[in-house]
C-alpha cells in the first residue's frame, strides 16, 4: 500500500468516525444538528478571531462598550487582573449570573475563565453556554500538576503559554487556541514580547530542521509531547491553532507590536477598563490590531488615546517572584 492510499484510508476512517459522531448526537437528541464539538469546529472557531481583540469585562455595561468598539469577543471576570493582583486571596471563576447577564446583552462571543485544573468550573461554563473557556493562570490554580482534559468538552479552550513546549503541551491536552501568558494586570507588555519571541525562536528552529527526525524526536521528548505534534508544527512553521498575545497590552501601539511579532490577535485585560478613556482606547486598539501593517492607521489609533489616561502599570522587576502569575501551571 502506498502512502497516498494510506491517506485515503485514514480519511475514510475519519469520515466514518464523523458519521458515527453524528449518529450518536442524533440518538442523544442533542440541541445541535450534524456533529457538534468536533476538532474542526473547535479549532475553526478561534480562526474567526484573527486580527481581532478580546476584551476583559466585569459587567454588561462594559461588555456593551467592548461590542460597540469592535471587540471580536469579551472575557467575563469577577475582577480585572489588576484588581486580582491588588486584592490577593483566592481568585475564582466569575459569578454565573454575571456571565449570563453579559451573554444576554451582546451578540459577540462570550468567554470566561476557569481555574487551572478545575474540571467542574469548566463543566459549569460549558453548561451555561460560554463560547470559549480560558483555563487561566490569572485565577488561583486548583491543580498545580495537571490541566483539564479539554478533548472531552464541546466548547473550545484557550490556554496561556510562555514558550513553544508549554504551548504544545496545552495543545496535546486539547486546547483549541493558545495565548502568551505575559504578566497579566501589569500594563507592561515586556513579558508578552518575551513569550512571543520565545515561540518564534523555536518555530524557526523547528521549521529549518523539519527533516531532521532525530532533532524533532529530541525536541518532542524534552517538551513532553508527541513526535507527531512536533513534526506537524515543524512542517507548518507555526502553531496549528490560533495564537493570541495577552498580558500587559495597554495601548494601540502595544497591540500592533504583538501582531507584528506574529500574534493572530490580542487579549486586552486591565488595559482598557483600568484606563480613564475606555471607549476611545477600546476602539483605538481594535483599529491598530486590524491595520497594524499600515503606519498611518496605527498613528490614527494612537492619536485616539492619551498616555495621561493609560493605566499606571507595574514594573515587572518590582514584583516578588511569588507575585508572578505566569509561572503558574506551566507543567
Amino acid at each position: 500500500m502506498s502512502w497516498v492510499e494510506a491517506t485515503g484510508y485514514l480519511e475514510r476512517l475519519r469520515d466514518l468516525f464523523y458519521g458515527l459522531a453524528e449518529i450518536r448526537d442524533t440518538i442523544k437528541r442533542e440541541r445541535c444538528i450534524g456533529s457538534c464539538g468536533t476538532v474542526r469546529v473547535k479549532i475553526g472557531f478561534p480562526t474567526m478571531f484573527r486580527n481581532g481583540v478580546i476584551m476583559d469585562v466585569t459587567n454588561p455595561e462594559q461588555a456593551g462598550i467592548a461590542e460597540d468598539a469592535g471587540a471580536v469577543g469579551v472575557m467575563v471576570l469577577d475582577k480585572l487582573p489588576y484588581d486580582v493582583r491588588k486584592s490577593g486571596g483566592v481568585a475564582r471563576m466569575a459569578d454565573v449570573k454575571a456571565i449570563e447577564d453579559v451573554m444576554n446583552s451582546i451578540t459577540i462571543p462570550v468567554s470566561a475563565k476557569c481555574r487551572i485544573g478545575h474540571y467542574m468550573e469548566a463543566v459549569i461554563l460549558e453548561e451555561i453556554g460560554v463560547d470559549l473557556i480560558d483555563e487561566s493562570e490569572v485565577l488561583t490554580p486548583a491543580d498545580d500538576q495537571h490541566h483539564i482534559n479539554k478533548w472531552i468538552f464541546k466548547v473550545p479552550f484557550v490556554n496561556g503559554a510562555r514558550d513553544l513546549p508549554e504551548a504544545l503541551r496545552r495543545i496535546s491536552e486539547g486546547a483549541s487556541m493558545i495565548r502568551t501568558k505575559g504578566e497579566a494586570g501589569t500594563g507592561n507588555v515586556a513579558e508578552a514580547v518575551r513569550h512571543m519571541k520565545a515561540f518564534n525562536n523555536d518555530l524557526r528552529t523547528l521549521a529549518s530542521r523539519r527533516d531532521d527526525e532525530e532533532f524533532l524526536r529530541d525536541y518532542a521528548r524534552s517538551s513532553k509531547v508527541s513526535y507527531e505534534l512536533v513534526k506537524l508544527v515543524a512542517d507548518l512553521g507555526r502553531l496549528p491553532v490560533i495564537n493570541f498575545a495577552a498580558g500587559g497590552i495597554a495601548t494601540p501601539a502595544d497591540a500592533a507590536l504583538m501582531i507584528w511579532l506574529g500574534a493572530d490577535g490580542v487579549f486586552v485585560g486591565s488595559g482598557i477598563f483600568k484606563s480613564s478613556d475606555p471607549r476611545a482606547r477600546a476602539e483605538a486598539i481594535v483599529l491598530a490590531t486590524s491595520r497594524w501593517d499600515d503606519p498611518e492607521a496605527v498613528v490614527e489609533a494612537q492619536r485616539m488615546v492619551s498616555e495621561k489616561s493609560a493605566m499606571q502599570g507595574i514594573d515587572i522587576k518590582s514584583l516578588k517572584p511569588e507575585e508572578l502569575l505566569q509561572v503558574r501551571g506551566s507543567a
Binding site: Y18, E22, R31, C32, I33, G34, S35, C36, G37, T38, R40, V41, F45, M103, T107, P109, E126, G129, V130, D131, L132, K154, V155, P156
Partner: peptide, 12 residues
C-alpha cells in the same frame, strides 16, 4: 447566531 452559541456549532 440562528443555531445557538458555540456549543451548538456543528459540521455536517
Amino acid at each position: 447566531n440562528a443555531f445557538g452559541r458555540q456549543r451548538e456549532s456543528f459540521e455536517t
